[in-house]
Design a protein around this nucleic acid. Structure first.
Length: 477
RNA sequence: CGGGAUGUAGCGCAGUUCGGUUAGCGCGCACGGUUCGGGUCCGUGAGGCCGCCGGUUCAAAUCCGGCCAUCCCGACCA
């Protein structure tokens, strides 16, 4: 753990992997492109998962589980879908020592097998809507991988719903994007921009795709979650039909929406600094770490007594860890817990015991600035207040960073400069040709067409044609 | 799949040019002591198919051939 973290301005991507490995979120595995999620990383993912799951339940969804294996023929039923996913499928051709009659695909996503089941479960308008979510893993044969951001196997959730009308499906799609945005902003302290994907960027098989887009610490964009309005594409491919009130057979309208452990990567890159992780209090596996400081046995007794009072005062209200390891010095522990991103540290030394106080040190304000003295008597509320303050400050800092690096270019030259150093929010005519030109010349792509639009029309930044909407262009992960 | 690089202790590396006793160093690990309000210091010790297979040689981490793996840069991507 004594290794140094590569500074961000020296090599951002090494900084990123240094943090993941040294903070023990994850490790590389013997399998190329697959990572091991270590307990600390899993705890972070679990907290995110619980925060999302609460919201899913609150909006009427239930969890279920569908098979890992999907018959090859299922994938081929929806034309766009097969075209989009074929290059990255893992396929099982043998089982039990025999060649399979039909190869099985390891799911890259589950629209097809869930669609197949929905076609059996749905008969009547009375069966609708069907609102199911699945927590699981999927596999996509990626050529270049990075921990959390792009791994061959990843953990995620995928919601799949079926509705009687287009309007209802569209409302569901938008609602779930809102859920993601709310979770990103209020749990992960990541400001995200919700919007619509361009035609070229949308999900294989969707009518319309929506996403939330976030700016990372290197000013590149990360698509943090997506929600798709699938129209009747999958309903027609899988024969998902119902009888309406007039006894007429109708195809369902379906949706799907997903968020993966990629969000953990976003948390790292949005909040982390050169000392290590900075985790938002609401999701941090350890919210508060208490570090005792002493020299003699006598001091130890007094300090540990005070630590017990800290534990009693905080009770179950926060996720507290007491670092009573004897083999490390306090300074060593400070550095380690800062590396691991614990939002709030409590220091208790002999001087504090004498004054019946403790030191609170806030992770998001390094050094002396983030340290305050708090009397033991009012500790519980001081700690919960501090956690709230940290959560809010982290979001505020991230908003300011994003806004400071978002440009509104009005000519192509300044546009090119803008996407080389941040987000460009500007008029776009909607033509793929313009997107392609931008991509070729700058490596930037349209991230989304934000819901928040200025109105009116403008000149497309690329071709100067009439544009009715503004889009975010950026280099993306 | 194209271009570049690297495989030596758990991790990071030196040694390979020009073959030669017992393969080193730092960190980490174990033990003892010392220290403890911002990564203490000292001592002792454990730990190695030198990526794999083959060849040359009295002798290979070192030379030759093949293979494998990983990383970086490009084309595709939650």
């Amino acid at each position: 753990m004594a290794e140094k973290i590569t500074p961000r301005n020296q090599d951002y991507s090494r900084w990123y992997t240094d943090l993941i490995l040294q903070a023990q979120l994850a490790d590389y595995s013997p399998v190329r492109g697959c990572m091991v999620l270590r307990p600390y990383g899993f705890a972070l993912w679990e907290n995110l998962k619980n925060a999302l799951d609460r919201r899913f339940k609150a909006t009427g969804h239930e969890n279920a589980y569908f098979p890992l294996f999907i018959p090859m023929s299922f994938i081929q039923k929806e034309a766009q879908h097969v075209e989009g996913f074929s290059p990255e499928l893992a396929v099982v051709t043998h089982g039990g020592g025999k060649e399979l009659e039909e190869p099985l695909v390891v799911r890259p996503t589950s629209e097809t097998i869930i669609g197949e089941m929905y076609s059996q479960w749905i008969q009547s308008y009375r069966d609708l809507p069907v609102l199911i979510n699945q927590w699981g893993n999927v596999v996509r044969w990626e050529l270049r991988t990075r921990p959390f951001l792009r791994t061959m196997e990843f953990l995620w959730q995928e919601g799949h719903t079926a509705h009687a009308t287009h309007e209802e499906a569209e409302a569901e799609t938008r609602q779930m994007l809102e859920v993601y945005a709310d979770c990103a902003i209020n749990e992960a302290a990541i400001p995200v921009i919700p919007g619509r994907k361009s035609e070229s960027e949308k999900f294989a098989g969707a009518d319309t795709s929506y996403s939330i887009e976030a700016m990372m610490g290197d000013r590149r964009a990360l698509q943090s979650a997506t929600s798709h309005s699938l129209g009747q594409n999958f309903a027609k491919a899988f024969d998902i039909k119902y009888l309406d009130r007039n006894n007429e057979l109708q195809y369902c309208w379906t949706t799907s929406w997903g968020l993966s452990w990629r969000m953990v990567g976003a948390i790292i890159m949005v909040h982390g600094d050169d000392q290590g992780l900075v985790l938002p209090p609401r999701l941090a596996p350890i919210q508060v770490v208490a570090v005792p400081i002493y020299k003699t046995d006598e001091e130890r007794g007094g300090v540990m007594g005070a630590i017990e009072k800290v534990e009693a005062a905080l009770g179950e209200s926060v996720r507290l860890k007491v670092d009573d390891r004897d083999e490390y010095s306090p300074g060593w522990k400070f550095n380690e817990w800062e590396l691991r991103g614990v939002p709030l540290r409590i220091e208790v030394g002999p001087r504090d015991v004498a004054k019946e106080q403790v030191v609170l040190a806030r992770r998001n304000r390094p050094g002396r600035e983030g340290k305050t003295f708090v009397p033991l008597s009012g500790l519980a509320s001081a700690v919960t207040d501090a956690l709230t303050v940290i959560q809010n400050e982290m979001l505020q800092t991230a908003i300011e960073f994003r806004d400071a690096n978002t440009y509104h270019p009005t000519d192509y030259e300044s546009f090119k400069e803008a996407v080389s150093k941040g987000f460009a929010l500007t008029w776009w005519c909607g033509e793929i040709a313009c997107e392609d030109k931008v991509k070729e010349e700058t490596k930037a792509t349209t991230r989304c067409i934000p819901f928040d639009q200025p109105g009116g029309t403008g000149e497309c930044i690329v071709c100067s044609g009439v544009a009715e909407e503004v889009a975010i262009f950026a280099r993306a992960y």
